[in-house]
Computed example of a mutant assay.
Amino acid sequence: MDLKLELIVLPVSDVDRAKAFYEKLGFRLDVDKAASEDWRAVHFTPPGSECSIIFGKGLTSAAPGSAQGLYLIVTDIEQAHAELTGRGIEVSEVFHNAGAAIFQGHEAGDVTHKLQGQERLAGPHPERASYSSLLTFSDPDGNGWVLQEVTQRAPGR
């Protein structure tokens, strides 16, 4: 069976504010449809992605900002940092972590690959190893995103 992740629902408190943010981020607007005063769906796709996001009114009971650890993959983390800051998006500095990594959440909007108690090290990974250089940002509600540099995919990916 072939399974593909298609859509992620983001909980937001202000649909128009979220729409403006994701437009500024450079995501492609696919749909903005309101069926009633109580239901609206706004659908965006990140450039180059086969998976999209959707948010709106009447779509989820999850608390606004509760989606964390949403990964976007880039081939050049420093170029991505420059482009996002050039668009006026507030992002962390590029960082990496020493040693092996496991998934662990931290403060809201700060979900990264990190070993328990391990500190972020400034800048991209010194060897620019795939999956090792990251940056984070959040949308206006606090939904947390991670950009991860991948230049060579792990086997089977």
Results as ranks from 00 to 15, higher is better:
Asn143His: 08
Gly65Glu: 11
His43Pro: 04
Thr75Gly: 13
Leu84Ile: 06
Thr136His: 00
Ser132Thr: 15
Leu29His: 09
Lys24Phe: 08
Gly99Phe: 03
Lys57Cys: 08
Tyr71Trp: 12
Ser132Asn: 11
Ser138Ala: 15
Leu29Tyr: 11
Lys33Pro: 00
Gln104Pro: 01
Gly99Gln: 04
Asp30Tyr: 01
Val111Glu: 02
Gly88Phe: 07
Ser52His: 06
Trp145Ile: 12
His113Asn: 10
Ser49His: 11
Leu5Met: 09
Asp141Trp: 02
Ile77Arg: 00
Val91Gln: 00
Leu70Tyr: 05
Gly65His: 11
Ala41His: 09
Gln116Ala: 05
Arg17Ala: 11
Ala80Val: 06
Glu83Thr: 10
Ala82Arg: 12
Asp16Thr: 15
Ser36Asn: 07
Ala98Asp: 14
Ser133Asn: 08
Glu107Leu: 11
Ser138Leu: 05
Val12Tyr: 07
Glu78Ala: 04
Leu10Gln: 01
Val150Asp: 05
Leu121Ala: 02
Gly99Pro: 03
Arg17Tyr: 00
Tyr22His: 02
Val12Phe: 05
Asp32Glu: 11
Gln79Glu: 14
His106Glu: 15
Gln118Asn: 09
Ala35Leu: 10
Ser52Ala: 08
Trp145Ser: 05
Ala82Glu: 14
Pro126Gln: 06
Val146Ala: 07
Lys33His: 15
Ser36Trp: 03
Gly65Thr: 12
Pro155Cys: 07
Arg128Glu: 04
Thr85Trp: 00
Glu83Ile: 10
Ile73Arg: 09
Arg120Val: 01
Ser130Trp: 12
Leu3Asp: 08
Ala82Ser: 14
Lys114Glu: 02
Pro47His: 07
Ala101Glu: 15
Ser138Gln: 13
Asp2His: 13
Phe27Asn: 07
Thr85Ala: 10
Ser52Asp: 06
Gln152Arg: 14
Lys114Ile: 00
Phe44Gln: 03
Gly88Trp: 06
Leu72Asp: 04
Ala108His: 10
Glu90Lys: 13
Arg40Gln: 15
Arg153Asp: 09
Leu134Gln: 15
Glu93Gly: 13
Leu5Trp: 09
Gly65Asp: 11
His96Trp: 08
Val12Lys: 06
Asp110Ile: 00
Gly117Gln: 01
Ile54Pro: 00
Arg87His: 12
Leu135Gln: 03
Lys19His: 10
His96Tyr: 14
Ser133Thr: 13
Leu29Cys: 11
Thr45Val: 12
Arg17Ile: 12
Arg128Ser: 06
Ala35Arg: 05
Leu5Lys: 09
Pro64Asp: 07
Ala63Val: 14
Thr151Ser: 10
Gly105His: 07
Trp145Leu: 13
Ala34Ile: 05
Glu50Thr: 14
Ala122Glu: 03
Val74Arg: 04
Gln118Lys: 03
Asn97Gln: 06
Asp76Gly: 09
Leu147Pro: 02
Pro64Val: 13
Val94Arg: 01
Thr75Tyr: 01
Thr75Pro: 04
Arg17Cys: 14
Leu25Asn: 05
Leu115Val: 07
His43Lys: 11
His81Leu: 08
Val150Trp: 03
Leu5Thr: 11
Leu59Cys: 02
Glu37Gln: 08
Thr85Leu: 05
Gly58Thr: 12
Glu50Met: 08
Phe27Pro: 03
Gln68Asn: 10
Leu25Met: 09
Phe27His: 04
Lys24Cys: 14
Phe44Tyr: 13
Glu149Gln: 14
Leu121His: 00
His125Gln: 08
Ala101Lys: 11
